[in-house]
Nucleic acid binder design. Structure first.
Length: 222
DNA sequence: CGCCTTTGACCAGCGC
DNA sequence: GCGCTGGTCAAAGGCG
């Protein structure tokens, strides 16, 4: 079995302020890697860095592969990625894009519980109202990256064609509906794919000071 | 005792 | 229409 990982305690810190990647808009995404231990870090560089935005497909579905300068790849691993919009990546790890002035469109699926929806048989309510999401890929020994938020695991599933289960986490903060999926790449088990869905309505549960000091971004990330 | 993980079951979406 | 698959729920158990 996989070691259970409490993201806020056992995982290596990778503080980041999770912004919103909406369809097709993103408010901000502020990677902050200042908490990464250097010599003992289980992370290693993915991609060449440099803040390139690389569309993986030619269409306008928003299939984008982002290569932020802190060497963490943002990408869209599955068909859900079609909801990931265009992203701007600034040097220093800042990622941002236009939001069309609608910060919360697409959010707020669930004031109703899933069971309630099931019972009421609200057709299409389960998947069609997708949260905005984005993914990034890291090379890491640990599954759960500490992004400053506190997560509770609510499910695990073995997905097809992978020997590693996918874990489902939800932000423990009340009224915060952000979720994330964590899975390891089938081709390369060292690679961890983290998919965030939704937008935090609060600050990180700890290290808030650090999260507001973007100037440190990537300075400690070799 | 409260919070968390585990895990089987359930359901919707999708492809055939 | 049916089967497969992914995503979620919730009960049970573990841990600090």
């Amino acid at each position: 079995m996989f070691p259970s990982a409490t993201s806020s305690s056992t995982a290596v810190k990778m503080n980041q302020q999770i912004g919103l990647v909406e369809n097709p808009m993103i408010s901000s995404f502020n990677f902050q890697t200042s908490l990464l231990p250097l010599s003992s870090s289980p992370y290693s560089v993915v991609g060449g860095g440099g803040g390139d935005l690389v569309p993986t497909h030619g269409d306008d579905d928003g299939h984008h592969f982002i290569r932020p300068s802190n060497n963490i790849d943002l990408w869209s691993p599955d068909r859900a990625s079609k909801e990931v919009g265009a992203v701007q990546v600034n040097h220093g790890g800042m990622i941002s894009s236009k939001n069309n002035g609608k910060p919360d469109s697409g959010l707020g699926v669930g004031s109703m519980s899933m069971r309630t929806m099931m019972k009421k048989k609200v057709k299409g309510a389960r998947r069609k109202m997708r949260e905005p999401r984005f993914c990034f890929k890291t090379m890491s020994e640990v599954d759960v990256l500490d992004d400053g938020y506190k997560w509770r695991k609510y499910g695990q599933k073995v997905v097809k064609n992978t020997q590693h289960p996918r874990s489902y986490y939800r932000c423990t903060q009340e009224n915060c509906r952000v979720k994330k999926r964590i899975e390891r790449l089938a081709e390369d088990p060292r690679m961890v794919i983290t998919t965030y869905e939704g937008r935090h309505v609060h600050s990180p549960s700890h290290d808030e000071e650090d999260s507001q000091a973007p100037s440190k971004v990537s300075t400690l990330f070799w």
